[in-house]
Design a protein around this nucleic acid. Sequence first.
RNA 1: GGUCGGUUGGCCGAGUGGUCAGGCAGCGGUCUGCAAAACCGCGUACGGCGGUUCGAAUCCGCCACCGACCUCCA
Length: 491
Amino acid sequence: MSDFIIYNTLSRSKEIFKPLNPGHVGMYVCGPTVYGDAHLGHSRPAITFDLLFRYLRHLGYKVRYIRNITDVGHLVNDADEGEDKIAKKAKVEELEPMEIVQFYTNNYRRNMSQLNILPPSIEPTASGHILEQIEAVQKLIDSGFAYVVNGSVYFDVEKFASGNDYGKLSGRKIEDLYSNTRELDAQTEKKSGLDFAVWKNASAEHIMKWKSPWGEGFPGWHLECTAMSTKYLGESFDIHGGGLDLLFPHHEAEIAQGKACFGHDPVHYWMHNNLITINGQKMGKSLGNFITLDELFSGTHPLLEKAYSPITIRFFILQAHYRSPLDFSNEALQAAEKGLERLLKAVELLEKIQPSGHSTIDVNGLKEKCYSAINDDLNTPVLIAHLFDGVKLINSVNDGKETVDTEALLKLKKLYHDFTFDILGFKTGIAAQAGSNESVLGEVVDLLLNFRIDAKKNKDWATSDKIRNSLTELGFEIKDTKEGFTWELKK
RNA sequence: GGUCGGUUGGCCGAGUGGUCAGGCAGCGGUCUGCAAAACCGCGUACGGCGGUUCGAAUCCGCCACCGACCUCCA
């Protein structure tokens, strides 16, 4: 089998994946800030790195997957004046900040589970790792890369850059950064506009704050990832993932902090998923195209023509390569919905197919194509295209135009099970339906359709059509087959 | 303005210097009492202008447009 290749943002090239410790992989992915509903923007990194997690496990690696929850009072900029968002909400609604954090964390986890995203191995919270962060701050001060001003601690970018390549991940040059920031804020307590907070002194109205050697305050944003990745994965680990929007300054800062603390780069492979647009526009609250996952799943947003199932969203996202931009539109989502249905139906059909004496289809060839696609930097669109080629074959076998022998059929089933369910993480809604307590309803439908068969035998087309049309109106899809009929309930 | 990335057929979305992506939609056919599904066939697309080449959508240059990041904060 071909090597597993990953595009490393650090080298701007595809590299063969080799874990630091044979058989084990440590990966860290930037998770959500839990001050609001999970939205479309959360789905792509979560799905991308869930795919990676699943595939690494499929390859036999023991994976420790860390995805943090940022729950320490930090800010948002969207039409916000820089006041701490979590603290602000807490006052308005008279709730404990941690109550809000818990609410949205639960919400996020529920949405992720709907998208069939596996829970990470560890989901650490920033608020639960204040001690580790204080230690990291101290370490930075001790090593001379951070300085204290008025109860805040800042990372000294200039000093770091004098001996290190600050900007190597995001492709920025320190001189350019200076020329961009110089004029803007001359009068802060920072030595340079490029410096970033690793510990921030809390103002009186700030609710979420902790005691530290430098006074009451809260940790700087970039620091939590450094502290928690180090705690659970060590000073060096394999993969760090996140959205492209985090490339600068967040990930750049993480590299600087890690190197300042340990003397070497913390991460071997940096992976970044591209972002999502809606009808060609960036998603933003001020643009009126901010869609939460709940709205998407229920179809309640004005921009949505209908509800889209979580697995449809998953399929849609995986039908594009994770490093390409992806645009959401009703038309594209409906196309994805139908495509997914076609794929899942064929996988279901596979269970009913009877083997023949010999095989006319090349399962090994298909399998090889599938693996080389996913091995090429998780090229899921090409993988899915190959799976659709196989769908055609499966349907043709069903139509008696191709044949498979027992061995080929077993391989084919395993191939589709592995890729469709285990790796890509799709699941059938129909399968869930069949085993439900709606079995009585199913028997009633069968009963009616058996009456219809009798009518058909008598060439009583009026009755036959009436039964089918009435069921269709109720949302059932009826198909006649050689053996009789099949039906399913469309949502 | 700076840096990086993108511009592919009706829609979405891969990819390669010279044969095919794939999905959805559409058209024609097979099957069917009719339908649905399935299968078969059909579209000669690669932002614009130059250049390199026997040959470029794929390489180079310029231009246009789109996006991300570039103060604070997460």
